[in-house]
């Protein structure tokens, strides 16, 4: 049976301590700049904070994974190199990378630190994963959220490294690392700046006459809600649009659902997944505490051969629609 490590989000030093105390095997975090894919205001770590965080985690037996998982635009590569140098100096346990230039730099300059391949690298076949393992010594791949469990099991048998999968949290629809929807509408790039549907571009506009609420990004109406509906955040791939034969407006990509693979945990462990990732570096301490604790209990129960109380985990997304996404069936595609 795989180790089934629990990899937990740490958007702030406080969240990191919370996740470690709640039983995270590892936390992942980033610096306060474009070098990571959650470059949101108020999130992430200064170098000093990261150094302290590593000490805190290591003293409690938890690992720290540093996300350097964006794509440096030409002329700005040094920022990513410096981030890698700082991380290595502070003793992080692994770098999570996507860009080949960044991976190559770390493999050559910090060969003692593990490399994990970010979901942003979009490696969805054994061959792609083996490319990164062969050239950069990648020890673990974070799989894109587009594969079924039987497909994951087959990949596991054909690659020389560990597999990490997302199990809980936001559920992006596009292949990560290949999406410039946000840049098209706002001028801020997911790949280069680490932002997705940024709050600075969000507006909610109420039409007093009809009572409808428009949820807008960069001036575009991503969705419109009736008086009885709760207005959602304008994430481009979760919006409602019209098409010539869909004049009523429909979720062209996906409904605003979040991923919850609680019920599939035993199957994922059986498929050889080494580590489970919980999304949510932008979430509160309270959220991190409840989600990490619940998954800690569930994973420990499953590994001890006990029945996990899955209902606790399912309840975590109460009030929000849930999906098992691509993991459950090919029909999702």
């Amino acid at each position: 049976m795989s180790l089934a490590e629990l990899i937990c989000p740490a958007g702030t030093p406080a969240a990191l301590r919370t996740a470690v105390d709640a039983g995270a095997d590892a936390v992942y975090c980033g610096f306060q700049d474009a070098t990571n894919a959650r470059n949101f205001p108020g999130l992430n770590f200064t170098p000093e904070e990261l150094e302290e965080a590593v000490a805190y985690a290591h003293a409690r037996g938890a690992k720290v994974l540093l996300a350097l998982n964006t794509y440096p635009p030409a002329g700005k590569v040094d920022l990513w190199r410096q981030a890698a140098d700082s991380g290595a100096r502070f003793g992080v346990d692994a770098f999570i990378v996507a860009d080949m230039g960044v991976a190559d730099y770390i493999a050559r300059n910090h060969p003692g630190v593990r490399l994990h391949l970010s979901v942003q690298a979009a490696a969805s076949s054994p061959e792609a994963i083996r490319y990164y393992a062969q050239h950069f010594g990648v020890k673990r791949v974070v799989l894109p959220r587009i594969l079924t469990i039987p497909e994951i099991r087959k990949i596991r048998q054909e690659i020389p490294c560990e597999i990490e999968t997302f199990i809980f949290g936001n559920h992006g629809l596009m292949v990560e690392g290949r999406c410039s929807l946000t840049n098209y509408l706002t001028g801020q790039s997911t790949n280069m700046d680490g932002v997705c549907s940024p709050a600075s571009e969000v507006e909610y506009i109420r039409d007093e006459a009809t009572g409808t609420m428009s949820s807008c990004l960069g001036g575009f109406t991503i969705d419109r809600f009736g008086p009885e509906e709760k207005a959602g955040y304008p994430t481009i791939c979760k919006g409602r649009y019209t098409a010539p034969h869909r004049p009523e407006g429909y979720y062209a990509f996906e409904e605003p659902v979040s991923l919850n693979l609680s019920r599939l945990l035993p199957d994922l462990i059986g498929a050889g997944v080494h580590a489970f990732k919980i999304e949510g570096r932008q979430r509160s301490k309270a959220y991190v505490r409840s989600v990490v604790s619940a998954f800690r209990r569930a994973v420990d129960d499953i590994r001890a051969g006990r029945a996990a109380n899955i209902e606790d985990l399912v309840a975590l997304t109460e009030g929000q629609k849930q999906t098992q996404g691509a993991f459950e069936t090919k029909k999702w595609r």
């Binding site: 596009m174 410039s180 595609r333």
Partner: peptide, 20 residues
């Protein structure tokens, strides 16, 4: 401009079908 790719076919989805 190519803006995104997905595992899901949005053409099929728009017509109530799946990729398969």
């Amino acid at each position: 401009a190519p803006l995104a790719v997905s595992a899901r076919c949005y053409h099929a989805r728009a017509h109530g079908r799946t990729k398969d």
